[in-house]
Amino acid sequence: MASGDLVHLVNQYGNTSYLDVNGGPVAGSTGRKYGVHTSTTPNRAGTSGEWSLFAETSSPQDGAIRAGELVHILSNYNNTSGGWLDISGGAAGGGGVHTALTSYYSNRTSGSGAWRFAQA
């Protein structure tokens, strides 16, 4: 993968599901935009399940995204206005640590919008 690639993020738990912006505004702390969940289809509504990957940097600096490098993930929902993939500080429930959402900002709070790919 390379910085700027458009992808679907496919969850591996149980039946196949795709990371998706739910399109409804998220109440709460400043900077939150939309909720995030999974869908049984790649794009539940328009481009709601499409995500663009943007690397902070890479080594070597060739635009490739490698395991362990920091990326920011932008939703392509509604012509890229879906926001940046982010987490809230609150627990998701059911054993979760944080709730996923999108934000107006690529890194709303100290790493909340920074992601790394890890080998599964």
Score class of each variant (00 low, 15 high):
70 L>A: 09
70 L>W: 13
71 V>T: 07
71 V>E: 01
71 V>M: 06
71 V>C: 09
71 V>A: 00
71 V>H: 00
72 H>A: 01
72 H>M: 05
73 I>G: 13
73 I>H: 14
74 L>G: 07
74 L>K: 15
75 S>Y: 15
75 S>D: 14
75 S>A: 15
75 S>E: 15
76 N>L: 12
76 N>Q: 15
76 N>K: 14
76 N>G: 13
77 Y>Q: 15
77 Y>R: 10
77 Y>S: 14
78 N>H: 13
78 N>S: 14
78 N>D: 15
78 N>A: 15
78 N>R: 15
79 N>Q: 13
79 N>Y: 15
79 N>F: 12
80 T>V: 07
80 T>H: 11
80 T>S: 15
80 T>F: 15
80 T>Y: 14
80 T>Q: 14
81 S>I: 12
81 S>Y: 10
81 S>D: 12
82 G>E: 02
82 G>Y: 10
83 G>F: 11
83 G>L: 11
84 W>R: 05
84 W>S: 05
84 W>D: 06
84 W>H: 03
84 W>F: 11
85 L>H: 01
85 L>R: 01
85 L>M: 07
85 L>T: 03
86 D>H: 03
86 D>S: 05
86 D>T: 10
86 D>C: 06
86 D>V: 01
86 D>P: 05
87 I>P: 09
87 I>A: 04
87 I>H: 06
87 I>K: 04
87 I>C: 04
87 I>N: 04
87 I>T: 11
87 I>F: 03
87 I>E: 05
87 I>M: 05
88 S>K: 06
90 G>P: 00
90 G>K: 00
91 A>Q: 11
91 A>T: 08
91 A>P: 08
91 A>G: 13
91 A>E: 11
92 A>F: 05
92 A>E: 02
93 G>T: 08
93 G>M: 03
93 G>A: 04
93 G>S: 07
93 G>F: 04
93 G>R: 04
93 G>L: 06
94 G>C: 07
94 G>F: 07
94 G>E: 11
94 G>H: 06
95 G>Q: 00
95 G>P: 07
95 G>I: 06
95 G>A: 09
96 G>S: 02
96 G>R: 00
96 G>V: 03
96 G>M: 02
96 G>W: 06
96 G>A: 09
97 V>Q: 11
97 V>I: 09
97 V>P: 00
97 V>W: 06
97 V>H: 10
98 H>P: 02
98 H>F: 05
98 H>E: 02
98 H>I: 01
99 T>L: 08
99 T>A: 07
99 T>S: 07
99 T>V: 00
100 A>F: 09
100 A>Y: 10
100 A>D: 03
100 A>M: 12
101 L>A: 03
101 L>P: 00
101 L>Y: 01
102 T>E: 03
102 T>L: 04
102 T>K: 05
102 T>A: 04
103 S>T: 03
103 S>A: 04
103 S>H: 03
104 Y>S: 12
104 Y>C: 00
104 Y>P: 00
104 Y>G: 10
105 Y>K: 10
105 Y>A: 14
105 Y>T: 14
106 S>D: 09
106 S>P: 08
106 S>V: 02
107 N>K: 05
107 N>M: 06
107 N>A: 05
107 N>W: 07
108 R>K: 14
109 T>I: 05
109 T>P: 01
109 T>Y: 06
109 T>V: 08
